[in-house]
């Protein structure tokens, strides 16, 4: 499988108290656990991103508990009201225990 790489889109600047839109996408097969191997007839084990979290300056702002019905290359778009400058941290948790994360800075005011 391709190397898992998160992509996020966060505005670089915002006004204090502005509600901004954040978009995230991560390349992942999201193997549902419901498919059969065409050759062996065996079920292919489930392997999905089961959790996504977004934190701002260490505080949780948005999260999702994810099931196999979320499409391959999971995409989440959501809003955040940013009170001050700081750093977003986004984390995806894989069924195999690995976590993928990335950070983005935003400047508020100024």
């Amino acid at each position: 499988m391709a190397k898992v790489k998160p992509r996020v889109k966060v505005p670089k600047k915002a006004e204090a108290g502005e509600v901004i839109t954040i978009k995230t996408l991560i390349n992942h097969k999201m193997e549902s656990g419901l498919r059969k191997d065409k050759k062996t007839g065996e079920l292919i084990p489930k392997k999905i991103i089961n959790k996504f979290t977004a934190e701002f300056n260490g505080k949780p702002v948005f999260s999702a508990d994810v099931r196999p019905a979320v499409s391959a290359n999971p995409y989440f778009q959501f809003k955040v009201k940013v009170p001050e400058s700081g750093t977003f941290k986004f984390t995806w948790v894989d069924d195999d225990g690995s976590t993928y994360s990335t950070e983005k800075k935003i400047t508020v005011g100024g």
Partner: peptide
């Protein structure tokens, strides 16, 4: 109508500003 009905549960906070979200799902 899916073999398993669960899709996702989204959690919001005071910092959400708006309770809205978008995703892509399998049906």
């Amino acid at each position: 109508g899916n073999p398993r009905p669960g899709v996702a549960t989204f959690h919001f906070s005071e910092m959400s500003g708006e309770a809205s979200a978008s995703t892509r799902i399998r049906l």
